[in-house]
Amino acid sequence: INNLNNNGIRVIVLTGDNEYVTKAICEKVNINTKRIVLGNQVDKLTDMALIRILKNTNVFAKLSPIQKARIVRLLGESGNVVGYMGDGINDSPSLVNSEVGISVDTAVDIAKETADIILLEKDLNVLNDGVIEGRKTFGNLMKYIKMAVSFNFGEVSSILIASIFLPFFPITPIQLLVQSLIYDIGQLSLPMDNIDKEYTKKPRKWNIESLKHFMLWMGPTSAIFDLLIFSLLWFVFGIREQNSSLFQTIWFSYGIISNLIGLHIIRTAKVPFIESNASKTVYLFTIIICIVAIIVPFTVIGKFLGLTNLPPFFILFIFIIPILYCFLAMIVKKQYIKKYGDWI
């Protein structure tokens, strides 16, 4: 019970037993019994009044099946994600009204058929562990989605703008497809990534507004930095149309490496590598794919794609520039968190 409470999961008791038995049992498992509301009192309350009572009452006794189902319904309608656990025939309406119905393997058949989850062990820690794993899965999913929308927004925008001013494509369609395939392979490690403990301490919900804000902050940041790289290659290093294959090769390898290093910025609200570390699998994939990004231009596949051998100076350039992008992204991330209060 304490673990559930500590992880933002409130435990409410709905029972048909009398208040004396209910109070004795709840006190043994550390559930607050300062206020117990009875079924005959529930019947006298309007839905709005009952919702107000539910905000600070954890124990309801002498309830009928219909009263239990009503409370579960009102909890859901007031914005809560409700899980209900029961093993009897009279629990079926509440199991139906809840978002997650939970029963046990010794329950009556109708309760087990109605439930979404059936516990095979007498251990509520299974519920706590399941919720934490669900939050970890959701967190890693959001990492991938936010990384995809921000990097794609930034890269597509910068390529479109650069294509208007350059006399050649900064990267050809086939090169772009292979580039995307390679760093997508690197992102396959995200389901095995670590999640910051702070992230799993409270429930999370899908929020399209948060996704939009993230894209409109990190996407332009990525695009501006990409355009800066294009400018350096054209104006500083003097790579012109006759060396377009070198320009495309640099962008091909840089795009993969910058996205994979940027992954470590996006995966946590903390300072990566110092305050929060990715899993060993993510680090391994990052290193391998970065090496692949440098090797491909030297291979037969690279020649088929129209890439050329990279001079040592530009190999060093490709690794240094993403590090500078990380510092810029950290500044933007700090401002984003300050404004919106969240990250992933």
Rank of each mutant, 00 (worst) to 15 (best):
Leu260Ile: 05
Arg267Glu: 12
Leu233Tyr: 01
Ile224Leu: 13
Asn259Gln: 15
Phe230Pro: 10
Asn243Glu: 11
Ile265Cys: 13
Gly238Leu: 07
Ser244Gln: 10
Gly219Ser: 05
Pro220Thr: 00
Gln248Met: 01
Ile239Pro: 11
Ile265Val: 15
His264Val: 00
Gly219Val: 02
Ser222Gln: 10
Thr221Gln: 06
Arg267Val: 04
Phe225His: 11
Ile266Gln: 11
Thr221Ala: 12
Ser258Ala: 15
Thr249Glu: 04
Leu233Trp: 01
Leu232Thr: 00
Leu233His: 03
Phe252Ile: 01
Leu233Gly: 05
Phe237Pro: 02
Met218Trp: 05
Leu228Asn: 08
Trp234Cys: 08
Asn259Met: 08
Leu246Trp: 07
Thr221Asp: 03
Ile250Ala: 01
Ile266Ser: 13
Phe247Asp: 00
Ser244His: 10
Arg240Cys: 11
Met218Ser: 09
Lys270Asn: 00
Val236Gly: 01
Ile224Lys: 13
Ser258Gln: 12
Tyr254Ser: 06
Leu228Ser: 13
Glu241Ile: 06
Ile257Gly: 03
Ile229Lys: 07
Ile257Ser: 04
Phe247Lys: 01
Ser258Lys: 15
Ser222His: 10
Asn259Val: 02
Asn259Ser: 15
Ser231Ile: 01
Leu260Phe: 06
Leu228Ile: 11
Met218Ile: 13
Ala269His: 13
Trp217Arg: 10
Glu241Phe: 08
Ile257Met: 03
Ser245His: 08
Ile250Ser: 02
Ile229Asp: 07
Tyr254Arg: 08
Ile224Gln: 14
Phe230Ser: 09
Ser253Gln: 04
Thr268Ser: 13
Ser231Lys: 06
Arg267Gly: 04
Ser231Phe: 06
Gly238Ile: 04
Arg240Thr: 10
Leu228Phe: 15
Ile229Gly: 13
Phe247Met: 03
Gly262Pro: 09
Ile224His: 09
Ile261Pro: 11
Val236Glu: 00
Gly238Thr: 07
Leu233Ile: 03
Gly255Lys: 12
Ile266Asp: 12
Phe252Thr: 00
His264Gln: 15
Met218His: 10
Leu228His: 11
Phe247Gly: 02
Ala223Thr: 05
His264Met: 07
Phe252Gly: 04
Ile256Leu: 03
Phe237Asp: 00
Ser253Ile: 02
Ile256Ala: 01
Gly262Arg: 06
Ile224Asn: 14
Ser231Gly: 12
Ser222Asn: 14
Met218Tyr: 11
Phe252Asn: 00
Ile266Ala: 13
Leu232Gly: 04
Phe225Val: 12
Ser222Tyr: 08
Tyr254Pro: 14
Ala269Ser: 10
Ser231Glu: 09
Gly255Pro: 07
Ser231Tyr: 07
Asn259Gly: 13
Trp217Lys: 10
Lys270Leu: 02
Tyr254Asn: 09
Arg240Glu: 12
Gly219Asp: 03
Ile257Asp: 04
Gly219Phe: 05
Ser231Gln: 07
Leu232Met: 12
Phe225Ala: 14
Asp226Lys: 11
Thr249Ser: 02
Ile239Asp: 04
Ser244Asn: 12
Ala269Phe: 08
Gly238Pro: 14
Pro220Asn: 03
Ile266Phe: 14
